[in-house]
Design a protein around this nucleic acid. Structure first.
Lengths: 248, 248
DNA sequence: CCATATTGTCTCATTATGGAACAATAATAG
DNA sequence: CTATTATTGTTCCATAATGAGACAATATGG
């Protein structure tokens, strides 16, 4: 499974990987009622990028996505969705990657495989901010969480990719509601209050929801199991705790 | 724009095209209240496949999709949507393509580029059955419309691709409702009756809709303009004709 | 002229949603 | 120990959306 491949930057031919095909990840983390995404920073270049990766020759593409995601976040049980594939010629710009490689002391030739045209498959992931152990990739120096409002300038078309990921995530929320997949489970404690669940929805959708309607809707879906009352909390009535029903 | 490239089958290196990247098309046609998709047939091989294509080195991927679609259908103004990218290793099976090429009198070596592993970007299209001029690609001998219920055995994972296209199309119908894109326009006469529009929806969704609800909903969306009454028709009250409002 | 099928519209029951009220109650302040 | 306070679970009602059917209108075919 984990055969040794030459590190990417020292592999000018890209041996062992599918040529011209990349993956980019929009990794959403839920932290303090804020939605953040994980970016890589390249020191001395002022360049930021989405985490990315490549597909090995003997690997399913979706498996490759899980592998790279695990390498970047340390997490294996992740909600992951392929949302779009980006193939514009405008993506083909050698400048930023060359800058990054040069800042690393490399001096790639024009036909280094990383400098060729790539089509990139976009995935978005939802992960638990607290459980993640972000790890930079071999070319970058730093992993940082950014709120969507404070995104820095991103390489290539990565801003558009992040934007499209958010749109897809929001549009998917309704449809995923009924499904048993419970995308929300990995983002919440095992037992959570209705308020916490609502806050999660509001954070992702970027808008307020009505409390009574939300509760009614959620309870009507038969995806929640009510547990005992919560003991701790604030200066007010204790809320119930819920967990997702994991039947079948 | 239309630079001359060596025909695919005589181009063992795939010069001029992005390596390892294909596109597959699920072309939906609306005919006699039936939803059909366009398949290619390879004579003497008993093999059927979705129309496919490749991306040129100096071409946006989505432009390539329109180009190929135009080559296969003769249509240029087409509703086209990229819905998923298929990258399983199981797609990598030389046998069917080798059979096809041999039936054409070709004898490709194992590393002919068409026999290598491909990742394929799936697009679905909605076209007017009557306006289409289906044209087989250089390797196939025939274009045939099939209803979804009567699909023959398809090459590789093409059946799964068609299935996913249909699911995506159906799921998208609601969301596209509000939009001004009016995906339905190219599938209907310039002026159409409410019954025709409803039939279109029913055909795509594969289920009956309630007549009064459908009419109420459509009229409430403010996307239809009512014209004069239809003059011809059957032995019954003449229905109104409508057209889509094309404002901004 | 009559029968017939389909259309445009209307009505009423049912269901979903928005918006607000209200009692319950766990912590905190006195 | 009591009062205060914030938040919760629930209920209520107005409004909106949808399901299901009724009914008159009317081109065409007989």
């Amino acid at each position: 499974m984990s055969e040794k491949l030459t590190p990417l930057e020292q592999n000018p031919e890209g041996i062992g990987y599918l040529p011209g095909l990349a993956m980019d990840f929009v990794i959403f983390g839920f932290d303090q009622y804020q939605l953040k995404i994980l970016l890589l920073e390249y020191r001395n270049t002022n360049l930021f990028a989405l985490p990315g990766g490549f597909v090995r020759e003997n690997e399913n593409m979706n498996d490759a996505a899980r592998r790279v995601l695990s390498e970047r976040t340390g997490l294996s049980d992740i909600y992951l969705d392929q949302f779009y594939t980006f193939g514009d010629l405008a993506r083909y710009d050698q400048a930023p990657l060359r800058t990054i490689m040069q800042a690393k002391g490399l001096n790639p030739t024009d036909d280094h495989w990383l400098l060729r045209r790539f089509v990139s498959v976009g995935y978005y992931a939802l992960i638990d901010f607290r459980k993640a152990a972000p790890t930079p990739d071999p070319l970058s120096d730093n992993c940082i969480w950014y709120t969507l409002e404070n995104l820095p300038e991103l390489m290539l078309d990565h801003k558009a990719i992040a934007q499209k990921a958010l749109e897809t995530l929001r549009a998917d929320l309704d449809r995923k509601l009924g499904g048993y997949d419970s995308w929300a489970a990995p983002l919440l404690p095992k037992a959570f209050t209705m308020g916490e669940l609502q806050k999660l929805y509001e954070t992702i959708l970027g808008q307020q929801l009505r409390r009574s309607s939300f509760q009614r809707k959620m309870l009507s879906l038969d995806i929640l199991e009510r547990l005992e009352k919560q003991y701790s909390g604030g200066a007010h009535k204790a809320p119930y705790l819920y967990q997702f029903i994991m039947d079948k």
